[in-house]
Amino acid sequence: MPPETGRLTLESLLHLTGDPAFWAACAVTLFAGFVKGVAGFAMPLIMISSFSAFLPPEQALAGLILPTLVTNVSQATRQGVAAAWDSVLAYRRFLIATLVMIVVSAQFVRVIPQAAFLMLLGLPITAFALAQISGRKLALRLEHRDRAEWIMGGIGGLYGGVSGVWGPPLIVYLLSIGAEKVETVRVQGVVFFLGALVLFGAHLQTGLMAGPNLWFSAALVLPAMAGQVFGQRVQDRMDQARFRRWTQGLLVLTGVNLVWRALML
């Protein structure tokens, strides 16, 4: 990866593009962007899981931040800025809880062991998704929706600051309330964008997003966007039932992957 410097130089760019790990990261990001375009989520999880096989943990986390930030701008505003703002207002409790906990937990990214966090998140996510696929009704009761937003948002933010992945609790919540496809994807974009923005700011302060890590992350924006565009074309042809099955299946894989990551740490 590029030399330890905060300035973007020709030397650093040549060093970056000459590293096989960089091209491997681009391929992973292209695929992750495609999945995100189809389902609206899972890009950070695919990236962090794959990156961990050939990159240091901190660089793996840094790499996903800017692609996540940029792709979610497109996803959140696909139906217009007004629709995105409506989603902010409708899910404001979830957003507040998520953003606050991302800031808090990001400060401990270098000291908190991730294995226990990932296991505690992965097991219930997997169980929930499998139950949904099997036809069991596990929807949250609407009279407790406000409380559920605070709790699920806080859980997502807690894990997000440490691992860069805060989507699964949101997906569980949206599946539970029966949100339709367009709303689901837009709300994911809004929550993920604001979360990525806060995570980026938090790790500018921690020093994680500086020098080579910053430029590495910036270089992955293009393959992320390209993959997302192709994925969105597939999503547009899906009906609600098929989209829900895709979401449930990816949620199972997400949970299993979180458990696997915990066991490998």
Rank of each mutant, 00 (worst) to 15 (best):
K137D: 12
F108N: 10
Y91V: 00
M47A: 10
L118C: 07
N213E: 07
D86M: 04
D239S: 07
K181C: 06
I102W: 01
V104I: 15
S12T: 12
T206Y: 09
A139R: 00
Q107I: 04
L30S: 13
W150A: 13
E183P: 00
L251H: 08
L123Q: 06
W150T: 05
E4T: 02
S52P: 01
H144Y: 09
L99F: 06
I102F: 05
T71W: 04
S134Y: 07
W150E: 11
F108H: 07
I133S: 11
P44W: 15
A241Y: 02
V198N: 12
Q107E: 13
R92I: 07
P223D: 13
L61G: 14
R145W: 06
S74F: 03
G153W: 02
Q240K: 15
H15S: 15
T5H: 04
A62Y: 02
G154N: 12
Q232Y: 01
Y173G: 12
L265K: 10
M264G: 13
M119E: 04
A97S: 15
L99G: 13
S176H: 03
V182C: 04
L8V: 06
L250E: 10
A21F: 01
I151E: 07
T184R: 10
A116R: 01
I171C: 05
A210K: 03
I133T: 12
P124W: 07
T126A: 15
V198E: 10
H203W: 03
G178V: 01
A131E: 05
L194W: 05
V81T: 09
